[in-house]
Design a protein around this nucleic acid. Sequence first.
DNA 1: GTGAAAGCGCTAACAA
DNA 2: TTGTTAGCGCTTTCAC
Lengths: 332, 332
Amino acid sequence: MVKISDVAREAGVSVATVSRALNGLATVNPEYAQRVHIAAEKLGYRGNAIARGLRRRKTDMLALIISDVANPFYTAIARGVEDVAENSGYSVILCNADEDAAKESRYLRAVEIGQVAGVILSPHSGTTDVSRLRAADVPLVVVDRPLAEPVDSVMVQSVDGARAATRHLLDEGWRRPACVTGPADAATALDRLHGYRLALADSGLGIAERFVHGQFSQADGAAGASALIDGAEPPDSFFAANTQLALGVIAELRARGLRIGQDVGLIMFDDAPWAPFIDPPISVVAQPAYEIGVHAARLLLSRVTGAEAGPARDLVLSTELVVRGSSRRVPT
Amino acid sequence: MVKISDVAREAGVSVATVSRALNGLATVNPEYAQRVHIAAEKLGYRGNAIARGLRRRKTDMLALIISDVANPFYTAIARGVEDVAENSGYSVILCNADEDAAKESRYLRAVEIGQVAGVILSPHSGTTDVSRLRAADVPLVVVDRPLAEPVDSVMVQSVDGARAATRHLLDEGWRRPACVTGPADAATALDRLHGYRLALADSGLGIAERFVHGQFSQADGAAGASALIDGAEPPDSFFAANTQLALGVIAELRARGLRIGQDVGLIMFDDAPWAPFIDPPISVVAQPAYEIGVHAARLLLSRVTGAEAGPARDLVLSTELVVRGSSRRVPT
DNA sequence: GTGAAAGCGCTAACAA
DNA sequence: TTGTTAGCGCTTTCAC
């Protein structure tokens, strides 16, 4: 490893001057700066981020802790974050909490002692403990799911989106829509269920609620759909709270020989690359995932640099109803 | 921030003893160790990974640089890596190179100066420059795509898998299979094309090759299929070299009203969660993505800890042909 | 504008 | 076994 003192010797100046020159501090003789840069180049000097971080007491890394790398929604957020961070000279490290509270807290801890400049977190639940992070004064932005305490956040209008989706089902003529949602301790699951209920109430049709909770997984989507279908008054349509649940619902419907878009309607929260290719194409409530990442990163960076002080800010982005074939009610 | 000296004072011992006790070095009086742990607990001591890294000249972080976070194949690898790393007390930071050589080299650089214990890389191309990494003596394991130089690697039998897929198409009775593959500078694209060609030659049927290169993207999959169909002797079946390409092929086939599994056959390399839900379900050559991650992490860790010295090792995992509906040739 | 020197928090020699 | 001390490579006062 070539270090700063090597460059200093090569350039015939002090290490302090090398440091200043390399960091672009204006207070250095242009000629010396030139010499330093040439020497650094010649020696292939890379610097040592660890040492720099130790001294500066912070790094130029942002941590993004997401709930599930396998979910394209989160990876889209990641790309938004990365693009913004990169433009500002920060790198972002991705941590996969895997919907696991223990893993999440381990990463939170690692990140805390790892001295990152800031963290963006999609919390496992509203009770995720970020107190140490806040005590350590590490800027934090929460995405997708809110936290109990006041903290910068970038959310999506889950309730409105779910409401619009359900209303759309009703508008198409379906009369017994059901909601297959996530765990009762996940805000997103609750919000989407809430929107569904609101739409039912809005309609004034006196339609009974049909819903089921489960993990955000394909298996639980299938199980939920199965339970609903086997119930007293089986649903004629489904609103799935995310793509994994929807995949399960689709599987169950297929297994029972129910034709989507004819015998039964379906719409899901969150878009997916494969959604248009299912037969029929799946209607969705699309979320601006990439933009969530962009906004979160901008907000975080403004806190990191101190450009923004003040109280916690909450950004709420809206969703978009994308009607494809699955929610249509085709008279047979 | 509470530091080691604070703990030392609280416990009434020296910083060295605190360090030893906390790191579980056996050479410390149990009573002192006890006091240290209590003091650390009381003060909420977290340690400073930066300082530790600086002094030890290495960290307990592994870097995983993948080509595309949005591709479930890579995220599955990531989970394998994480699980192994975690069990050995390492954390893994994920970097998304996004199929972009510039981004890749930036991460490689960041990782190099960031002093990670080791890196797992799915290289953008065979010419990715890892010389500095090797010069810096950072253990490296390459996955999915090979590098020109000798380096530990974990690969999949792409050629065999592609060959089996194509042979299956032939066995089903398709007589004009085409291959839609990735860029000509990607080894995986080439290997899969090669396997396709081999199967054609194996058959002894004198079938003409039909293939097209493109980016590993949905758009290029559609364009490729379109070009092939508009060619002189249009294919009666397709082998897509990855899931994104396959999605494009499916879109194009749909757009032209061609019924998969009847008018035309389809099989793709790599499985996907949505594959069984397309109508008809898509046949695939499944890759053991998670296992790739597991093996890569184990190999890397054995290098990191010095348990394994010797020359570069190359692991090659086999694929599995999963026949669903799309490759079947149903007499109409 | 420049350099000497003092640490950042930690671990590892080295003594005791 | 324990404590003292010397750095890891860098940035940043503080004199000059």
